[in-house]
């Protein structure tokens, strides 16, 4: 490799490495502030104290959804592994909103309740036909041992 190319190679590599380091440090510095959401247990341990509004993420507790009969008001409980949070929302919910669905709600705390202004449903990365899902659910129901073993992991 001739000296001119070597010099150019050095400059290009140095610029690329400098950019990568700068981006890496930037991302690292932002890491703590880049929480897109807080879980109910994080909120209960006081991590939401510094926010007026924040996003709450977790699963809708089965059977906790209660719809008002005369308005669009809905109350439900969002749970994660170690906490639960009652949520109040008035408005139209996404199609995927239902029991045991992951949701992300934006809003604020008021009297130990989370008052949501927006509720988004999160879906997972698994895609399969309905028949297959039903068959799997049936297999799980018939052999409860499998599900238990799966949950322990």
């Amino acid at each position: 490799m001739n000296p001119t190319r070597k010099r150019r190679l050095t400059i290009v590599v140095l610029v690329a490495v400098a950019a990568a380091v700068a981006a890496g440090l930037g991302v690292y510095a932002l890491q703590n502030n880049m929480n897109y959401l807080l879980t109910p247990s994080q909120v209960q341990s006081g991590q939401a104290a510094s926010y007026t509004t924040f996003r709450l993420g977790g699963m809708v507790k089965a059977g906790s959804i209660q719809r008002s009969s005369d308005s669009l008001k809905v109350t439900f409980t969002v749970v994660d592994a170690g906490g639960a949070m009652p949520v109040e929302y008035t408005g139209i919910l996404p199609d995927l909103f239902r029991d045991n669905q992951s949701v992300i709600a934006t809003g604020h705390m008021s009297n130990a309740r989370f008052i949501a202004t927006e509720v988004l449903a999160k879906h997972d990365e698994t895609y399969m036909p309905k028949e297959l899902k039903d068959a799997m659910a049936k297999a799980h129901a018939e052999k409860p041992g499998i599900e238990k073993a799966g949950n322990r992991e």
């Binding site: 690329a16 950019a19 981006a23 897109y36 988004l120 990365e125």
Partner: peptide, 26 residues
């Protein structure tokens, strides 16, 4: 273009590194 290439792994791994609304890799 070379400086911006650092963004490509960030796009790819963003769903693993942070809590996102977007789901992970299928």
């Amino acid at each position: 273009a070379i400086i911006g290439i650092i963004n490509v792994p960030i796009v790819h791994f963003s769903v693993n590194w942070w809590n996102t609304l977007h789901q992970g890799s299928t």
